[in-house]
Simulated assay, not measured.
Amino acid sequence: MGMSVTISAATADDAEQILKLQYLCYQREAELYGDYSIEPLTQSLDDLRAELGKGCVLVARLGAEVVGSVRGTVDDKGTAAIGKLIVHPRMQRHGLGGRLLAAIEERLAGERDAKRYRLFTGHRSEGNLRLYRRYGYAQVGTEEVNRRLSLVTLEKEATPSAYAASA
C-alpha cells in the first residue's frame, strides 16, 4: 500500500468519517441477523459526536482516511466496556482489528484505570468471536435479544503489564 496505518485518538473532525465507516461495516452484521434497525446503522451524527466527547475513541488512519475505529468507557468499578470495533472491509484480515483492540485496552487501563474489559457480539458473528478469543476474552454470558439474535458477552482481566507499560 505504500503507507502505514496509524492509530490515534479520534477528534471531532473524524465524526463523519467514523459514522460512514460504521454504516459500511455494520451492513454485514445487519444482513447476518436480518435486522437493519440495529443501533450502529441508526446512530445519528450528533449522537456519535456526543460519544466522542465522553468516552475514549480511537481511529486507525491510512493517510487522511479513517479505516478503523473502536470505542470504550470505564465504569466506577473499573470495568471497561469496549464497543463498535470496526475495520474497513478492504483492510480486514491484516491484523488491524487486533491492533485497535490492544490500543483501546492499553489506553483504558493507562488513562482510565480499567481493571477488566467487557465486550459483546452477536452469536453468529464467528469472525468477531475468533478475534476476541484470540486476544484472551472468554465468554461470560449470553442474552437472547430476539429469536434471531443472542448477544454473547466476553470479558478478560487487565494485566498489570498493560497498565504498567502505559504509565
Rank of each mutant, 00 (worst) to 15 (best):
M3Q: 14
I7L: 03
S8E: 11
A12T: 14
E16P: 01
E16D: 14
L24Q: 14
Q27R: 15
R28C: 04
L32M: 13
G34M: 09
D35V: 00
Y36V: 01
S37N: 15
S37Q: 11
E39Y: 08
S44C: 13
A50M: 14
V57T: 13
L58E: 11
L58H: 02
V59S: 02
G63T: 13
G63C: 11
A64S: 14
V66Q: 04
S69N: 13
S69F: 00
V70Y: 00
R71F: 12
R71K: 14
G72D: 01
D75T: 02
G78D: 05
A80Y: 05
A81P: 05
G83V: 00
I86G: 02
R90Q: 12
R90C: 03
M91A: 07
Q92P: 05
R93L: 07
R93K: 14
G95P: 09
G97Q: 03
G97S: 06
G98L: 02
L100H: 03
A102M: 01
I104T: 03
I104C: 05
L108T: 14
R112I: 05
K115F: 07
F120T: 08
G122I: 13
G122W: 06
H123W: 04
N128W: 10
N128F: 06
R130Q: 07
R133T: 07
Y135L: 14
G136F: 00
G136P: 04
Q139R: 09
E144L: 12
V145G: 10
R147N: 15
L149N: 06
L149S: 04
L151S: 04
V152W: 00
V152I: 12
K156F: 03
K156D: 05
T159M: 15
T159A: 13
S161F: 11
Y163C: 02
A164I: 06
S166H: 13
A167I: 07
